[in-house]
Write a protein that binds this DNA or RNA. Sequence first.
DNA 1: TCCATATTGAATGTATGCATACGAAATAGT
DNA 2: ACTATTTCGTATGCATACATTCAATATGGA
Lengths: 165, 165
Amino acid sequence: MSRLAARQNFVTDARNVSHADPCVSDLVIHHMPGHFIRRLQQVAVRLFVARVGLDMTPVQFAALAAAAQRPRIDQARLSALIGYDRATIGGVIGRLESRGWLARSASSVDRRVKLVRITPAGRKALSRALPAVSALQETLMESLDAAERKRFERLCLKILAHHLG
Amino acid sequence: MSRLAARQNFVTDARNVSHADPCVSDLVIHHMPGHFIRRLQQVAVRLFVARVGLDMTPVQFAALAAAAQRPRIDQARLSALIGYDRATIGGVIGRLESRGWLARSASSVDRRVKLVRITPAGRKALSRALPAVSALQETLMESLDAAERKRFERLCLKILAHHLG
DNA sequence: TCCATATTGAATGTATGCATACGAAATAGT
DNA sequence: ACTATTTCGTATGCATACATTCAATATGGA
């Protein structure tokens, strides 16, 4: 039987296995790339919260960094740039605006567009967070040596290029 | 100047770069492992929605699969097994219970515990979803050859083992 | 010019995801 | 036996994440 077929039958098979030996800890999902990708993301977010604190979320950092590097960018372009949904980023920017870290202004060229810019306070918050975020990336990869990190990055980018490119 | 120090100064440096050349598309976050891990997770979820449909979410699938392989598991063990927060899984199981795919019953041994079991309808839903989810994993990795997939998996697991213990 | 189409930001609704806190219940230590 | 601690499920609050819908506005083509 093929591996795929075996997986597809796990519902009936696994029940027997489970009854015979309840201590088997090997779930189907544990063999799936999707599972450990999600776990990686989970680890990264936890690390972010631990290092940067609850003062700023990962998305907020991304939005802030993007606004800092792209003065007068509109929301749609900003969301595309950092890879988030337009609807999500509206709320994110709203919260950042409430905290005085970003400001929105209507475009004089296109009246649908709202231009986003970072405030001095936002720039200050970003400066405070950036060292922690940079160090965090190092920690995230610390179990890999230089060659492995490069390999991991290349593989990630290859997968992403295939699905996003 | 070290690479880290260079990054830490991007806020002031990048502003000048940005003013000098607004067309630079290279954001700081694009070099961070945390960023493309999040993008990978995003791609995986999109693929899940595209293949399995809005009928079931990734967490719901994981919970359903875990309940199928572990009859009479309690919520805390189930959440630990699939790597989710206890509070989150409460809601997930609640929704699955509403749809008649899972059932909860009080434990006779420990009165705090609620035992979760999959229903025949849930087993049927799982059987329907599993082929799609398995095939999805293949699609997710399709840009990598066999050796690269193995390498990618090993690197992911190495990082996870380091951070999750 | 007029109109079909596309785009922008917002609103809505559903489902995570997790920190925090809480009551109920079990357990460990004395 | 008594108590301090832990654990379980739940509730609350906040912040994503995204599909869908909508009004306002731009834009391209006839």
